[in-house]
Amino acid sequence: MSVANPAILKLTVRNHPGVMSHVCGLFARRAYNLEGIMVRPVRDNKQLSRMWLLVNEEERLQQLIRQTEKLVDVICVEPHAMEGSAFEATQEYFV
Protein backbone atom coordinates (compact mmCIF):
# COMPACT_ATOMS: atom_id res chain seq x y z
CA MET A 1 0.00 0.00 0.00
CA SER A 2 1.26 3.42 -0.96
CA VAL A 3 -0.76 5.16 1.74
CA ALA A 4 1.03 6.34 4.87
CA ASN A 5 -1.83 5.81 7.31
CA PRO A 6 -4.39 3.73 5.51
CA ALA A 7 -7.97 4.06 6.66
CA ILE A 8 -10.73 2.01 5.17
CA LEU A 9 -14.35 3.04 4.91
CA LYS A 10 -17.13 0.58 4.26
CA LEU A 11 -20.16 2.29 2.75
CA THR A 12 -23.66 1.02 2.20
CA VAL A 13 -25.21 3.03 -0.59
CA ARG A 14 -28.29 2.91 -2.71
CA ASN A 15 -27.64 1.09 -5.96
CA HIS A 16 -28.56 4.18 -7.89
CA PRO A 17 -27.18 5.91 -10.97
CA GLY A 18 -24.95 8.77 -9.91
CA VAL A 19 -24.07 7.54 -6.45
CA MET A 20 -20.46 6.90 -7.48
CA SER A 21 -20.05 10.46 -8.72
CA HIS A 22 -21.64 11.85 -5.57
CA VAL A 23 -19.24 9.96 -3.31
CA CYS A 24 -16.07 10.22 -5.38
CA GLY A 25 -16.80 13.83 -6.30
CA LEU A 26 -17.14 14.78 -2.65
CA PHE A 27 -13.64 13.52 -1.90
CA ALA A 28 -12.15 14.93 -5.10
CA ARG A 29 -13.63 18.39 -4.56
CA ARG A 30 -12.03 18.58 -1.15
CA ALA A 31 -8.68 17.51 -2.58
CA TYR A 32 -8.79 14.35 -0.49
CA ASN A 33 -7.18 11.48 -2.37
CA LEU A 34 -9.07 8.25 -2.80
CA GLU A 35 -6.35 5.61 -2.96
CA GLY A 36 -8.71 2.77 -3.66
CA ILE A 37 -12.34 2.28 -4.66
CA MET A 38 -14.22 -0.99 -4.96
CA VAL A 39 -17.94 -1.17 -5.46
CA ARG A 40 -20.47 -3.88 -6.31
CA PRO A 41 -24.15 -4.46 -5.64
CA VAL A 42 -24.85 -6.23 -2.36
CA ARG A 43 -25.31 -9.95 -3.07
CA ASP A 44 -28.74 -10.45 -1.53
CA ASN A 45 -30.15 -6.99 -2.00
CA LYS A 46 -29.95 -5.48 -5.47
CA GLN A 47 -31.25 -2.15 -4.11
CA LEU A 48 -27.97 -1.64 -2.27
CA SER A 49 -24.33 -1.45 -3.18
CA ARG A 50 -21.30 -1.92 -1.00
CA MET A 51 -18.57 0.60 -1.59
CA TRP A 52 -15.08 0.23 -0.13
CA LEU A 53 -12.87 3.27 0.04
CA LEU A 54 -9.18 3.33 0.91
CA VAL A 55 -8.00 6.73 2.05
CA ASN A 56 -5.17 8.29 3.98
CA GLU A 57 -6.02 8.93 7.61
CA GLU A 58 -5.89 12.68 8.12
CA GLU A 59 -7.25 14.96 10.76
CA ARG A 60 -10.12 16.07 8.54
CA LEU A 61 -11.28 12.52 7.78
CA GLN A 62 -14.01 12.74 10.42
CA GLN A 63 -15.41 15.82 8.75
CA LEU A 64 -15.37 14.06 5.39
CA ILE A 65 -17.18 11.07 6.85
CA ARG A 66 -19.88 13.40 8.17
CA GLN A 67 -20.25 15.00 4.79
CA THR A 68 -20.38 11.60 3.09
CA GLU A 69 -23.09 10.50 5.52
CA LYS A 70 -25.09 13.53 4.47
CA LEU A 71 -25.34 12.33 0.86
CA VAL A 72 -28.86 11.22 0.13
CA ASP A 73 -27.86 7.92 -1.47
CA VAL A 74 -25.43 6.97 1.28
CA ILE A 75 -27.08 4.82 3.93
CA CYS A 76 -24.15 4.35 6.27
CA VAL A 77 -20.41 4.77 6.55
CA GLU A 78 -18.35 2.52 8.83
CA PRO A 79 -14.62 2.61 9.42
CA HIS A 80 -13.14 -0.84 8.83
CA ALA A 81 -9.83 -2.53 9.52
CA MET A 82 -7.63 -3.71 6.66
CA GLU A 83 -8.20 -7.22 7.93
CA GLY A 84 -11.28 -8.63 6.34
CA SER A 85 -11.64 -5.75 3.88
CA ALA A 86 -12.04 -5.98 0.12
CA PHE A 87 -8.59 -4.41 -0.23
CA GLU A 88 -6.85 -7.09 1.79
CA ALA A 89 -8.40 -9.83 -0.32
CA THR A 90 -7.47 -8.25 -3.65
CA GLN A 91 -3.92 -6.99 -3.16
CA GLU A 92 -2.56 -9.42 -5.75
CA TYR A 93 -4.65 -7.74 -8.47
CA PHE A 94 -2.80 -4.48 -7.99
CA VAL A 95 0.81 -5.39 -8.61
Binding site: P17, G18, S21, H22, G25, R29, L71, V72
Partner: peptide, 16 residues
Protein backbone atom coordinates in the same frame (compact mmCIF):
# COMPACT_ATOMS: atom_id res chain seq x y z
CA UNK B 1 -26.55 19.26 -16.09
CA UNK B 2 -26.33 16.39 -13.62
CA UNK B 3 -22.56 16.81 -13.36
CA UNK B 4 -22.78 20.61 -13.10
CA UNK B 5 -25.50 20.63 -10.47
CA UNK B 6 -23.92 17.87 -8.39
CA UNK B 7 -21.48 19.92 -6.28
CA UNK B 8 -23.79 22.93 -5.88
CA UNK B 9 -27.04 21.31 -4.84
CA UNK B 10 -28.24 19.34 -1.85
CA UNK B 11 -29.15 16.53 -4.20
CA UNK B 12 -29.76 16.12 -7.90
CA UNK B 13 -31.61 13.82 -10.24
CA UNK B 14 -31.51 12.83 -13.87
CA UNK B 15 -34.98 11.38 -14.46
CA UNK B 16 -34.87 8.32 -16.71
Amino acid sequence: TFGLMLPISKHNYLVR
